[in-house]
Design a protein around this nucleic acid. Sequence first.
DNA 1: GATCTCGGATGACATTCGTCATGCGGCCGA
DNA 2: TCGGCCGCATGACGAATGTCATCCGAGATC
Lengths: 200, 200
Amino acid sequence: MIRVVIAEDQGLVLGALAALLDMEDDIEVAATATDGQDALERILEIEPDVVLTDIEMPGMTGLEILQVLKEKKFAGRVIIVTTFGRSGYLRRALEGGAAGYLLKDAPADELAEAVRRVHQGLRAVAPELAAQAWGDPDPLTDRERQVLKLAGEGLSNSKIAGELHLSEGTVRNYLSEAIGKLGAANRTEAARLARKQGWL
Amino acid sequence: MIRVVIAEDQGLVLGALAALLDMEDDIEVAATATDGQDALERILEIEPDVVLTDIEMPGMTGLEILQVLKEKKFAGRVIIVTTFGRSGYLRRALEGGAAGYLLKDAPADELAEAVRRVHQGLRAVAPELAAQAWGDPDPLTDRERQVLKLAGEGLSNSKIAGELHLSEGTVRNYLSEAIGKLGAANRTEAARLARKQGWL
DNA sequence: GATCTCGGATGACATTCGTCATGCGGCCGA
DNA sequence: TCGGCCGCATGACGAATGTCATCCGAGATC
């Protein structure tokens, strides 16, 4: 019996995924959670064989959970299930030690199959992503990413400077760098492009 | 037996929802579709009692399907199931004759319940939305909306002016108006706020 | 110790944005 | 037919943004 914990913030989808997996004879859904913190607690408490988690969740993202589990030398395996195949996410997931990475638009029967593969020690990466995986690496530095992220939310340079404890001029420099690297015309377009690649 | 057709572009979620509903004794999933066009054909062919559809889908959105079904005097009832409670969407859905509007973060057992309610001729609107439904109507004029949308994608004023055949100064005026109405500090924040409300 | 590199900071400059007052021609209702 | 809006435009002005050259100090590298 493969014991699974599922973390997914959309209740309907969570319930549905659980229903789907519970139909399998060799898989048991041991617990579910709708936010990151909660998920982490359940996982550490239950020590399931496989963890299934979304990336975008309130409290703590799937990638952060992955990070923590790695530090705690968690013995089970983790599958990331998410909406979009952003190469940035995929790379971070694999670097973080994820055993699988599925897209939500995969056919439904791939899910149970992936759980089994992963439980056997194999990897399960959505085929349409495997190739693109190491495509174009994120050209942004940490600072540029931070600055761009805030700028993309509409903060002014001075607000950003305050937030990151930098001078306003420095913020301008990083932003200018980022805009150049992404071939954008301004901060807004730059943020949009970076977001599309999963770099934010 | 309530016959249901489900339209949802994310295969995994689609399969899972189907599994969830198929567990109910009085509900039968008659067909599923992963894009709007296909969904519409299935619905017209099968004439189910209830249609369950996402909003964002390739080919045709759930709201467009709703529109067409209304024109064709479709006898069944439609439930919109979507990710976020944007009041703009909700209003358009209800105006379009939707019988239900659920959020994906609702608890899973609400789904079957909603299907039954709707089949009996009742409405099923996620309670946390019902109040807000007619809350704040979109304060933006058509022009403001168009301009804001493009600005949010990173276009400069002059690009926007070219796109919409307006003068650059006029674009600035509309944008300034929109920023003011939304209480934002700049175009980027304004676009973000408007998007969050489903006004874009 | 001399030299490089790197994160961070300045200052100056041109451009773009955001705001506001104002002008003009339709079009609608009184 | 006369106001009064409304959509669109202008012009002007200050503030925010984008670009560059340059500088400084702390580690690395040699």
